[in-house]
Nucleic acid binder design. Structure first.
Lengths: 341, 341
DNA sequence: TTGTACGCGTTATCAA
DNA sequence: TTGATAACGCGTACAA
């Protein structure tokens, strides 16, 4: 067995200087090639590129930032109190979308959990010139406690702020419209008693989805309809469904504020010996993993979360680079009809 | 209404130089104060600190990195193919733990999705001196395709590698031991026919938890026991449970490889009119949100995922700073006894 | 204990 | 088109 002994130790990270030496040009030229400046002799450029490949050279971010006065970094802020967001599949997908978009840019994504205990630390970090832009994903998407920074730094939020918001850039699903369509599916199918299990009324998605349901129900001339409030968890959905059923009024369909609550409604409905969709049709919202793992498969609204994240990043990058961008962008949703309605 | 007009425009980011000027000392002194060097006159230090506060000065990371030749950055790699990891609550919690730990250090967390299409980009980034250490969380925790970098850069993995692993640092739950304890709970309670719904056998957690169940069952003199394999999803758990029941052999208890599969088993068991835990006791693994949202509340193994992430970060930081660290650390688990067993 | 001065790797300005 | 050379903001020997 032949061993190729490596006595060289960890090879020093190649610098622009070394590339210049190898290619027989000045550092300035190498820099130009790296940033593909137009004014550089094609032949020289080639030899420089060869040298870069030969040395496996990668520009040093720190040095570049220092010279450029730009960090090429985008920071994702996660408020600590709401660090339950991590348990939220919504959060995960948003981050995925953000990361995917940034992968194709020169920006690097970094994440900070901002402890409410000492926000100055976060503030200092953000304003210290270490970051070019900020993305905020909080659980209560209404929490825009960082809004005040948007004067000093480009910022984009996930979700509409609960109050104000005229100042900030944000991306959200078209919750109201989607809820309306989902409910229409029910009324158009001839359901006459369409109840809803709404999300928390201090969160924009909870509010908007309820509003969408309401207009559809009214439009169909079904009166005011039955409403119960949950907190987006499966358990709360089950409890809400039980309360609905306990009212003793007829119900032949339910629109749930999200899929988890819809799954909860399933257990309540089926637990009482009723069947879905024969006795009660169910429609959810989000199209998350619950939708296909329950029986019958859940008819729901597809929430383009990854695309939402992607869009947030795109808008932020535009903002950073001085390009125009919409303050509010609403992602289109679509109805996914399965077996529950 | 009195307006305080701000005509100054965006205040320039304060530099160490400005602090020095304000405090009437040299930049070197300010630098010493910032890095709290021992040898600096207490009084001077005070005035410098005042100046720092007055200017709201924050050190420039880029400049510091350049001078120090350290990035003060830790990168989290998420393999793209497995970017489904994002949907995995495990991933979210690990990241949370990592972020929480790093918050109290001088390290910044950044995240890259490594596209298998062009791994050189990621490689270049990592080896370009932009990063001090790497954390890897992949879905198939056996995927240690980045292991080769560990010679050049400190790296810590979430989960034991499927093969090899003698070289790498990793943190995992003590899956086998925990599975053993969980199963013992069943056998100790007098259950005589303890089956299992195991996870994928190409994933270490799937393997280890099955192994733990097996030794407990054998130890109790219950023969080989019934086994079915799932893929950690709720639906697969339900299917596996049905297969188990269809075998026509007696079953009075089931150990599921994770809570999602346990929830699936619930639907199968209850769907056949059997009751939990009277007819069949069920124990899960992970103690995730499913555990408390099902009825009866699930007895399960608490998987300290956030702590696992925290530990990964801690080990990485130690590695970076040249302190000693264990190659493999197994996080202790605990049994959470609820109503299903 | 404090200050001077140089270097970290890149970009950008200005001549050539 | 190319090449010196001066920033960029900070750490750190070294000297004082």
């Amino acid at each position: 067995m032949t061993m190729t002994q490596d006595t060289s130790g960890p090879r020093p990270v190649p610098t622009l200087e070394m590339v210049a030496a190898l290619a027989g040009v000045s550092r300035a030229t190498v820099s130009r090639v790296v940033n593909d400046s137009p004014s550089v002799d094609p032949e020289l450029a080639q030899s420089v590129k060869r040298a870069i490949l030969a040395l496996d050279y990668t520009p040093n971010r720190a040095a570049r930032s220092l010279a450029t006065r730009r960090a090429n970094t985008v920071t994702l802020i996660v408020p600590e109190s709401t660090s339950k967001v991590f348990a939220d599949p919504f959060f995960a997908s948003v981050v995925q979308g953000i990361a995917l978009y940034l992968t194709d840019t020169d920006y690097t994504l970094n994440m900070v959990i901002s402890s409410e205990s000492k926000p100055e630390k976060t503030r200092g970090f953000l304003l210290g010139g270490n970051v070019d832009g900020v993305l905020v994903v909080s659980h209560h998407s209404g929490d825009h406690s960082w809004t005040h920074l948007s004067g000093s730094l480009p910022m984009v939020f996930a979700g509409r702020p609960l109050v104000g918001g005229g100042e900030s850039y944000y991306v959200e699903a078209d919750n109201e419209q989607a809820a309306y369509s989902a409910t229409r599916l029910l009324t158009d199918a001839g359901r006459k008693h369409v109840a809803t299990i709404a999300g928390p009324q201090d969160m924009p998605p909870g509010l908007d989805r309820l509003a969408g349901w309401r207009t559809a129900v009214r439009e169909a001339g079904l009166g005011e309809g039955l409403t119960e409030i949950g907190d987006f968890t499966l358990a709360s959905g089950a409890r809400a469904m039980h309360r609905l059923l306990d009212r003793g009024k007829p119900i032949d369909a339910v629109f749930a504020g999200n899929d988890q609550m819809a799954a909860g409604a399933y257990t309540a409905i089926q637990g009482r010996g009723l069947s879905i969709p024969e006795d009660i049709a169910v429609v959810g919202f989000d199209d998350d993993s619950f939708a296909t793992s329950v029986t019958p498969a859940l008819t729901t609204v597809h929430h383009p979360i990854i695309e939402l994240g992607r869009k947030m990043a795109e808008i932020l990058v535009n903002l950073i680079e001085g390009k125009p961008a919409e303050r509010v962008t609403r992602m289109p949703t679509s109805l996914v009809v399965r077996d529950s309605a």
